Computed example of a mutant assay.
Amino acid sequence: MAAPALYLASSSPRRRQLLALLDLPFEVLAVDVDESAMPGESPLALVERLARAKAEAGAALAPQLLPVLGSDTVGELDGQLLVKPVDEQDAARMMRAMSGRSHFIHTAIAFSDGRRTLSHVVTSAVTFKPLSDPEIAAYWQSGEPADKAGGYGIQGRGGRFVSHLSGSYFAVVGLPLMETERLLNQFLGKETK
């Protein structure tokens, strides 16, 4: 196995799969960061703070002085956070609120080496088709929405509800590829075209 070029401070299988698409050898670092929002904190401020905190926590654990990637994703509808549903009723409430409307997915990425940290937020607008109660109930029964912020996964069965996406598909899944590569090059001082 090749020596790592960077570390990923995330236990998310989706982020590992996406980062692998950049063809950079990496190792995963398990970090523990409190993901609670601070009073009055906007979704944008929250997601960037969490990505930076994860990268910095990873840098404190890294066995080598390499860039550590931290990332976080949150949803937003009408200025309110879209979090993981607590139960079926909560998921149905969120899905009804998003039905026939657009919401925002904010994904923040950050690189840190313990000395400095660079971060960037990618915002995408996702529009759902109008959803029926039977569609919402059947989706919950699939098991997919239970551990997803906003109660859906665009890369899975939830993708059938998306009528329009403006922004980065990969950011909605959990890691914006082009922006991650660009921020890493910026962090390393490499010129990009």
Results as ranks from 00 to 15, higher is better:
41 E>C: 14
45 A>G: 15
46 L>K: 07
46 L>F: 00
48 E>Q: 14
49 R>D: 12
51 A>Y: 10
54 K>H: 03
57 A>Y: 00
59 A>G: 02
60 A>K: 12
60 A>W: 06
61 L>P: 08
64 Q>H: 15
64 Q>E: 15
67 P>I: 06
68 V>C: 05
70 G>C: 02
71 S>V: 00
74 V>K: 04
75 G>L: 04
78 D>L: 11
79 G>R: 03
80 Q>T: 05
83 V>P: 05
84 K>H: 02
84 K>I: 01
87 D>S: 13
91 A>G: 11
93 R>Y: 02
94 M>T: 13
96 R>N: 06
97 A>S: 13
100 G>A: 05
100 G>T: 11
101 R>Y: 08
102 S>G: 12
103 H>I: 10
104 F>L: 15
107 T>P: 01
109 I>G: 08
110 A>C: 08
111 F>V: 08
113 D>I: 03
114 G>Q: 14
114 G>A: 13
117 T>D: 07
119 S>G: 03
120 H>K: 11
122 V>S: 07
122 V>L: 08
123 T>P: 04
123 T>I: 01
124 S>P: 04
124 S>Y: 14
124 S>E: 04
124 S>C: 01
125 A>N: 11
134 P>C: 10
136 I>M: 08
138 A>G: 07
138 A>R: 12
140 W>C: 02
142 S>N: 05
143 G>M: 11
144 E>N: 05
144 E>V: 02
152 Y>I: 05
152 Y>K: 02
153 G>A: 15
154 I>G: 04
154 I>V: 07
154 I>W: 02
156 G>H: 10
159 G>K: 06
164 H>K: 15
165 L>W: 05
165 L>R: 02
165 L>M: 10
166 S>Y: 13
168 S>L: 01
